[in-house]
Design a protein around this nucleic acid. Sequence first.
RNA 1: GGGCCCGUGGUCUAGUCGGUUAUGACGUCGCCCUUACACGGCGAAGAUCGCCGGUUCGAAUCCGGCCGAGCCCA
Length: 879
Amino acid sequence: MRSLYFIPQPTLSRMVSSDQLPKNYDFAEVEERWRKTWRDEDHYFDRNSKKPQFVIDTPPPYPTGNFHIGNALNWCYIDFFARYKRMKGFNVMFPQGWDCHGLPTEVKVEELNHITKNDVSREEFRKMCRELTEKNIAAMRITLRKMAFSTDWSNEYITMTPKYYSKTQLSFLRMLASGYIYQDEHPVNYCTRCETAIAFAEVSYEDRETQLNYFDFDGVEIATTRPELLAACVAVAVHPNDERYTKLKGKTMKVPLFGHDVPVIIDEAVDPAFGSGAVMICTFGDKQDVHWWKQHNLALRKAIDRQGKMTAIAGKYQGLNTTDCRAAILADMKEKKILHKQEKLAQRVGTCWRCKTPIEILSERQWFIKIKPDEIQKAAHEVTWYPEHMLLRMENWVEQMEWDWCISRQRIFATPIPVWFCKKCGELAVPDEKDLPIDPTLTKPKHPCKKCGSTEFDGEVDVLDTWMDSSISVMNVTGWDGSGKPPYFPAQIRPQGHDIIRTWAFYSILRAVALTGSRPWDQILVNGMVLGEDGFKMSKSRGNIIVPEEILVKYGADALRQWGAMGAATGSDIMFNWNDVVSASRFQTKMWNITKFALIQLEKGGFDNDTPVIALADRWLLVRLSDTIEQVSKAMESYQFDTALKAIREFAWDVLADNYIELVKGRLYQQDASRASACLVLHTAFDALCRMLAPFTPYFAEECYSYFNPGQSVHKQPWVSFTYEDDAARKEGNTLIQVVAEVRKYKHDNGMALNAPLGKVTIYAPHSVNDEGDTGRTLNADVHWRTDVAKLDRVISDIEFNRSIVGKTFRKEGQAFMDAVKALSPEQLANPPKTIQLGGTEVALPENVFTPKYSYMEEGAKVDVLTVGDVIVTIAKKE
RNA sequence: GGGCCCGUGGUCUAGUCGGUUAUGACGUCGCCCUUACACGGCGAAGAUCGCCGGUUCGAAUCCGGCCGAGCCCA
């Protein structure tokens, strides 16, 4: 019936004496002490290990200098399962990367030094960026350590180091050779402030109000929001069914102010209801223009340059920026009396996600990576997604990809594109792989031009998109060096936020497939965003930003980590809530007191592993513990941290502290064999709690565990594997708990203190119960357990139906059936017949379909009667 | 405009492949300092489960529509 597979051996002789436990739990002191005690080596991935590997492709954060709360949530999840997997016997790699390159650091360097990137040499500027980045990384490492993340610092990687970016360059050369990477002149999103091309993933959208200008275009009215692009007009488009314009078919028209001729094209995508129904196509006003331009093979007229100034084709407007040019052209239109009207229009403008400047679409020579949707979809489906629905976001993103990935940037602090161009013939030259990393602006190729033999080259000045660095994080951590499949590939899991599914996850899958032919990870765990206390995304303008450091100072890392686990179901957005942090901290206080109580009791000794467990409460606690362990383990396997921690807390607080300990307290104060049983159970439960809490509250769990096992770390113990089966104990124990609760309520209702003496209490239960006197001591009453039937007059006051059975059996006749049962005589209800009359027919009465509810009449002795299921409790009334 | 997710006591939330009394926390109110804990214990009040309709013996749960919020994208 029951089995004890594992009860930890108590090491009584080595326990710390209870008088050494501080009265209150001082998280600040404890957390700092363990931080200094723990050794980094304990978290190193062991390359010679025989254990199964568990490699985590952790997100490399951008080194801003501040580890924000969204990062914190993300890392909490990682650390929960990293610690859990270690306890489960896996060889875990929890690397820490830093995604260094990119615009924000360049902007910050310019700001801090009051320079622009053109004021110093490229190398000098890079040096400044590197130095700032190193400083920021150092600051963020401190927060990571405070949070007790079990980082594998032997596998730290920094994308700006030659070690890392030579891999980025190697991956570039490999994908260039395999045809994934090509260069082409093509329209790209371009930020004229940052002076660089950007990818769609880097375009954000903002609501702005603009003016829709109606003007005369060679006799036809056209509405445009961008008159400054008139010089770049290459066609006029109308809808095929728009009768106003059918006569224009096949004609050409003269562009006002500029005078060049453009064709009229017919296209169903034109909205006849918008503006005048005729639209001018410019290269390029928006994405739709690019579409039409490609589809109708139109001319290319570049009116805006990389600095956002008008080009030579803009004639007298050359050199103006777009805003000034717009004003000038509108003024000229007014003067020529061709501007009919202007109206306000709400519109969404694509802007640079870094600096919020509206993006232009410019046609430039750029480097691209081919996007092959089918192979990305296939690999994405081979990965297990948590939560499952996040896969949809990937599917939707891949489906709507229109352009290839533009990977070149016209910036400085980034991985150089490792190619040269022959000065004579323009042929591309690439370095030998063994010479990587290289900066083509500083070095020359070792071989003459393959085509013309020239030794004169220009180095590529463009650099790589930062995602080119971070999208091979998984290649890096799994040990890729270009020679075949990496030794630890694929990684077991990728944890990340849902905001970067379309970037980091998408690019990582693309690159893994391109470089190895298969999926990068077995699983992906997607966490939600952290919202402010007001339910909105944290932002400076809303003033709802909470930083981890603030929480660490007030409540400590363990409380913050508990918030991360419990705030919301894994994958949902989570609102920051001080309340949750406070209750997390209260839970620690409660557990601290449980620790104290356990230590005070257990240090007295008198028990060992062979102590028989007999008392009902003890058996019940072990069953509940076994249930909890099963529940928590199951939740951990599917990354349901909220479920896991909730179950742990409920067991510790409700089951162990409020019920079990209250019940056995009196027994523990005595000295006999039944005390030993309680001690063994208490120790078993406490030990299991420490282990289950270890992934969530590493400092706290270590501190509690250390008092019982000095010199040993809970983090080096295996995960709990204790099971205990005893259905009778579960059922009878639950009843016992309810009886105690009912009697307490009875005392409360009668204005008695909970510890007030109660006199004689008789419990009539169907089975004999050995409670070792727990119930009597807890209730402060003279408790008698009896298995005979209580001699009481009782009447049936109500009938409780099992609607599940009623509905399934009688369907539409359900109500009629219940009425028929209620009409039975009290004798029949007490001893139900096998059949019952229903609508004139005899039908079988299902088993357990109803339970009579009794109310009791006093007999000779004056008693109050409580009922708990099939148990009757009588309380002798005091005269 | 599209996609995803969500709407449950004052607040936040569990439950959602239908079934007995809708979970817990915070807050509120009452009682209790019982040799681990007042940073605690016990108890109470408080919910037409967003709205409307449908399916069903039975809907917080399934379906449709509407309203509202958030996130991602065009």
